[in-house]
Simulated assay, not measured.
Amino acid sequence: MDLALAQLEIEPGEIEANLARAAEAVAAAATEGADLVVLPEQFVVGFFAFDDYPTHAAGLDDPLFDRLAAMAADNDVGLVAGTTVEDLAASAAAGYDVPATEGYANTAVFFDRDGNQRGVYRKHHLFGYESAESELLVPGQQLPTVDFEGLTVGMTTCYDLRFPELYRRLVDKGVELIVVPSAWPYPRVEHWKTLGRARAIENLCYVATTNGSGTFPDAETTLCGRSTVYDPWGTTVGSVGDEPTRLTVSVDPQQVRDVRGSFPALDDRRD
């Protein structure tokens, strides 16, 4: 299966421009043969544009998600639509299972080739350090996996990388590829590279970390890019710099099974 990471330029608060870049990247990746495309965290509004979160929050039945579904269906690809700000009250009113009936969540949605919502992941670990994320958002509770093209795929988001127990739970669900939409800033580049690789090594699975690109002047923050795919040995399959670009690599579920069979470290786990 060919996996494409779309490292998008994200302009804070520029909704239509950000969506247009996402649509262009998905279409280009599909033309190049991608089966699954992953977008970055908060690619619609921009992670650090916290004042814009309430204005642009959307329930899972909102036209925004119809547009994202169309990106998948029109291009015949699976799509992990990075993350967006979800209006939990609106999703609850539409019948979705939500962690709270009010407030907002940092939510990733997996669309299949027909544009159907196959999995919804809400970021479990909200950034502390007096960050507005932990003040504005509700943490997720569910940990779905999606079977896609013969591969069991799990989703986590950015700061989740620092909490390895979440990834062990995904391993118990049979995950073979974990995608990690992110908005990881400078200067913590070494953390970004080390944590993604560590999660792949310890869980003997593919880990695909998809970051954004761009600067948030109000937050005095720049995203570090460097979207990367690690294989089950922790070897870098592909990586990019900090400019907007795409990374496409092949991932093979049989490699996960072979590695876990030849080096069955997971069998030695003790609670």
Rank of each mutant, 00 (worst) to 15 (best):
E243S: 14
H191L: 14
S91E: 09
L79D: 04
K123V: 09
Y186Q: 07
C205R: 02
F65K: 01
L19M: 12
V207T: 01
L223T: 09
V180Q: 03
E16L: 11
L195N: 02
V171Q: 02
L8H: 03
R269A: 15
D172C: 05
A100E: 13
R118Y: 06
P144Q: 06
I178P: 03
T83V: 08
A20Y: 04
I201P: 05
T235K: 14
G238A: 15
T222P: 03
P139Q: 05
L223S: 09
E133G: 00
D51N: 13
D97F: 11
D160R: 03
L166Q: 08
A23V: 07
E32D: 13
R122I: 11
D160P: 01
Q254I: 13
H191Q: 14
G212N: 06
L88H: 05
L137R: 03
F111S: 01
S227D: 01
G214R: 02
G196T: 07
T215L: 11
I201S: 05
S262P: 00
E243R: 14
S134Y: 07
D87N: 15
R113G: 06
V249M: 10
D147C: 05
T228L: 10
Y230M: 08
L5N: 05
H191M: 12
R260S: 10
A72H: 03
F47H: 14
V98T: 12
D51L: 11
Q42S: 07
G212V: 04
A6V: 03
Q117M: 15
T31Q: 15
A22V: 00
E243D: 15
G196L: 02
G154D: 04
M71E: 01
N18E: 06
R270E: 14
G214V: 05
V77E: 00
A23Y: 03
A92Y: 11
L247R: 07
A69P: 03
P187S: 09
F50E: 10
E32L: 12
G241V: 12
A6M: 05
A17I: 03
T55A: 13
V237Y: 09
S213D: 03
G225D: 08
T236G: 08
Y53K: 09
Y206N: 02
T107M: 08
E243F: 11
R188N: 11
A27D: 09
A73H: 10
E41T: 11
A23F: 00
P164H: 00
D74Y: 08
L166G: 07
S134H: 12
Y230H: 14
Y121T: 05
F43C: 06
A30E: 04
E202A: 09
G154E: 03
D258T: 15
K123W: 07
D258K: 13
S250N: 13
A208K: 03
E9L: 13
S182L: 00
G119R: 00
T235C: 12
G154T: 06
T107N: 02
P187L: 02
R21Q: 06
D268P: 04
L68A: 01
P217Y: 10
L247M: 12
V153N: 01
V37N: 02
D218Q: 15
V237P: 06
A92L: 11
Q42H: 14
I15K: 05
L3V: 05
V146D: 01
